[in-house]
Computed example of a mutant assay.
Amino acid sequence: MDKSSGTVGVFTAADVAVFSVMLAVSVGIGVYSSYLELRYRSRALRQVITGALLINICIYMSFCLYAPSLALATVTNLSTSASILIVGTICTFYITIGGVRAVVYNDVPQTVLMFLGVLIVVLLVCKETVGAAEVWEAAGEGSRLEFFNMDPSPYVRHTFFSTIVLGAFVMLYWVGVSQAPHQRFISVSTLPTAQG
């Protein structure tokens, strides 16, 4: 128990602020679990957090590896297992040779390509049908158009409030306490270097 604050292993707003500051300024601690061990003086807490992060990242990476492998297996005669091995080997080689900086420098072109791909698909669909108005009308008939649903019920899917609240927590986790963006941020020495 921390006698000065009266808390027993409870994350405070100050902890979240420190996590966020650690993203902007590297204080020589490479991982958040190191901070938690220093803050709460508990090696067991560090091991539990490290285990939880490892389980989380293993599940996340399995999805990230499976999706492109399934796409590769679909367009070729490779089995899914072989395509997983091929994609995994290519990604491992790429990150080993180029490091995290190579990943950071490729994020922007990949994002631009994804948005362009979605835009091209939308334009092609509108061109193949009568036009954008018919696509919009079909989306409306299928109950796919729902803007600013202000229902406060947590049982209704995709309301304004549930999206904002969930989005805030997801972004707080991803940018504030997740190890992956922290590693990306500290791998680039200065802001001008990160901007290219």
Results as ranks from 00 to 15, higher is better:
Ala102Asp: 10
Gln110Thr: 13
Arg144Tyr: 15
Val156Thr: 14
Met22Val: 00
Gln183Met: 12
Arg157Val: 09
Gly140His: 06
Gly28Ser: 03
Phe11Trp: 09
Tyr40Thr: 00
Gly167Asp: 04
Phe148Lys: 04
Val170Gln: 13
Gln195Phe: 13
Thr50His: 02
Ile29Phe: 06
Gly140Phe: 02
Trp136His: 13
Asp15Glu: 07
Phe161Met: 04
Val118Tyr: 05
Val31Phe: 11
Val122Cys: 10
Ser83Ala: 14
Lys3Leu: 14
Ala168Lys: 00
Val118Gln: 03
Val188Trp: 04
Glu141Cys: 01
Gly117Glu: 09
Lys127Ile: 00
Ala168Glu: 06
Gly142Ala: 12
Val118Glu: 02
Pro192Gly: 04
Ala180Pro: 07
Arg184Phe: 06
Phe115Ser: 06
Met1Val: 06
Leu113His: 04
Cys91Met: 13
Pro152Cys: 00
Ser83Gln: 05
Val10Gln: 03
Thr74Met: 07
Ala14Met: 03
Leu113Trp: 05
Thr96Asp: 01
Thr50Phe: 06
Thr163Pro: 00
Met150Asn: 10
Gly167Arg: 00
Ala168Thr: 11
Ile164Gly: 00
Leu23Val: 08
Leu166Asn: 10
Cys64Gly: 01
Arg101Gly: 11
Cys126Ala: 15
Ser34Asp: 14
Leu124Pro: 02
Gln47Phe: 09
Cys126Asn: 15
Glu37Pro: 00
Glu146Lys: 11
Gln47Val: 14
Phe63Gly: 14
Leu145Glu: 08
Tyr173Ser: 10
His158Lys: 05
Arg157Tyr: 07
Val175Trp: 12
Ala52Cys: 12
Gly140Tyr: 02
Phe11Ala: 04
Val10Tyr: 01
Phe11Met: 10
Gly176Glu: 08
Thr129Asp: 03
Cys126Tyr: 01
Leu54Val: 08
Asp151Pro: 00
Gly28Ile: 02
Thr129Ser: 14
Gly51Lys: 05
Ala180Gly: 03
Leu45Phe: 14
Thr76Gln: 13
Trp174Asn: 09
Asp151Gln: 00
Thr12Phe: 00
Val177Ile: 11
Trp136Gln: 13
Val175Glu: 10
Ala180Lys: 07
Met61Gly: 08
Gln47Pro: 03
Val87Cys: 10
Val87Ser: 08
Leu124Asp: 04
Phe63Trp: 11
Asp2Leu: 08
Arg184Glu: 08
Ile97Leu: 13
Ser153His: 01
Cys91Gly: 09
Ser26Tyr: 09
Gly9Asn: 07
Val130Thr: 15
Val130Gly: 13
Ala14His: 04
Cys91Ile: 04
Ala71Gln: 10
Leu145Trp: 03
Val18Cys: 00
Ala139Thr: 05
Thr7Asp: 07
Met22Gln: 13
Ser34Pro: 00
Ile90Thr: 11
Ala13Thr: 13
Ser20Ile: 10
Val130His: 07
Ala14Ile: 08
Phe63Leu: 15
Val135Glu: 08
Met114Phe: 07
Pro109Glu: 09
Ile120Phe: 12
Arg43Leu: 06
Tyr35Gln: 10
Met150Ser: 12
Ala52Pro: 04
Ser5Val: 02
Met22Asn: 11
Tyr173Pro: 00
Ser153Trp: 02
Phe19Thr: 01
Phe160Thr: 14
Val175Lys: 05
Leu119Phe: 13
Leu119Ala: 14
Leu116Val: 13
Val156Met: 01
Asn149Gly: 01
Val103Thr: 15
